[in-house]
Design a protein around this nucleic acid. Sequence first.
DNA 1: TGACAAAGCGGAACACTGCTCCGTATCGTT
DNA 2: AACGATACGGAGCAGTGTTCCGCTTTGTCA
Lengths: 203, 203
Amino acid sequence: MSTPSQSSGEVPVRSKRADAVRNQQTLLAAAAAVFVTSGVDAPIREIAAKAGVGMGTIYRHFPTRADLVVAVYRHQVEACAEAGPALLAGTDSPFAALRQWVGLFVDFLVTKHGLANALQSDSSGFEALHTYFLDRLVPVCTRLLDAAVEAGEIRPCTQAYELMRGIGNLCVGRDSDPRYDPRRLVELLLQGLRRPDVDAGKR
Amino acid sequence: MSTPSQSSGEVPVRSKRADAVRNQQTLLAAAAAVFVTSGVDAPIREIAAKAGVGMGTIYRHFPTRADLVVAVYRHQVEACAEAGPALLAGTDSPFAALRQWVGLFVDFLVTKHGLANALQSDSSGFEALHTYFLDRLVPVCTRLLDAAVEAGEIRPCTQAYELMRGIGNLCVGRDSDPRYDPRRLVELLLQGLRRPDVDAGKR
DNA sequence: TGACAAAGCGGAACACTGCTCCGTATCGTT
DNA sequence: AACGATACGGAGCAGTGTTCCGCTTTGTCA
């Protein structure tokens, strides 16, 4: 409040040194650039070199690779999360909103080389990434899903967590073959969600 | 020709040395064991150690990791491939056959620690794995799909290749969270395949 | 301004893994 | 038994993640 401290501790927290914040910014920019060309699992050394800092620095600012990835993409994830309620408000078909929102998410994943792979990877250093994405987006997805169920557009059995992971999984390895288009399969998944009133009342 | 040769070449192919075939068997057994405990991307050294051979030997018999994985699981993949036509013949609903067959495939993938991950990985040494699985199973899946389309149970837009990859993707990372069950999502995908007789004008 | 402690930095060093290469051992044949 | 072909073993190189500690920079206080 009065003193420049952002945490709840009462110790006098000295604000970060100027070179530290500078380096953090530099690192974020460098990482973003490297991610584009070499994917999110580019060698740490490469990112450090691009930023012109030593490896100790990168590990100090971002202890795990996931921390760095999250920091780089945080804005886009936030934007995606915030788009959820907006889409829901902008239409009278919650299912259509869900579909649009999922489209946003897929676009995001698909345009980040290797991000989907990393997201599902169980290798060390990526759990936090997984956690952040899910913590932020699952609630949004839940709202959309609930709304669609309430509107009677889909059947109620699916959990948002599972759906999100499924969608993420479908986006893995998009670049390996032009015949594979995650979007088509995600659309299929969403269709599978629909309440089958057609064939129920097929009579 | 007269000499024991199994390939089409006419050079006198001497049969493999006894220790070589012995080692190959030992390696397969060791690899199978290690895959169970450490996953299909266990260190090559570990497999070599388990088999009691040097690393040169393992690379000579199985130049890439995919070759080893394929050799270990070949029988199961073959069994899965052969089950396709059988299932189709055993029912009058091709879609039901497809569903059962997909179930077999999912069971196979899901019980092999990390296999699904490897299958989709674009990392070096796994392309051949990808290729083998797909070459062997896509034709089977195509037949099932075609039959279901012909029977009017599903709509015709989906390619077997894409479906297989989608299913494989959905099986990635099953162990990371008990809330994630690939089977449910695969079922959803299959439901999405169904012909919605709404838009089917021929009714 | 100058001195000093804390904060931050750099990169050498270690561990682990994939993969190659070649001297040596083994096998099968004559 | 001898000998050439075949196969083996593992040292060694290269790439990467991660740690650790001596050195530099920064902010503060007299």
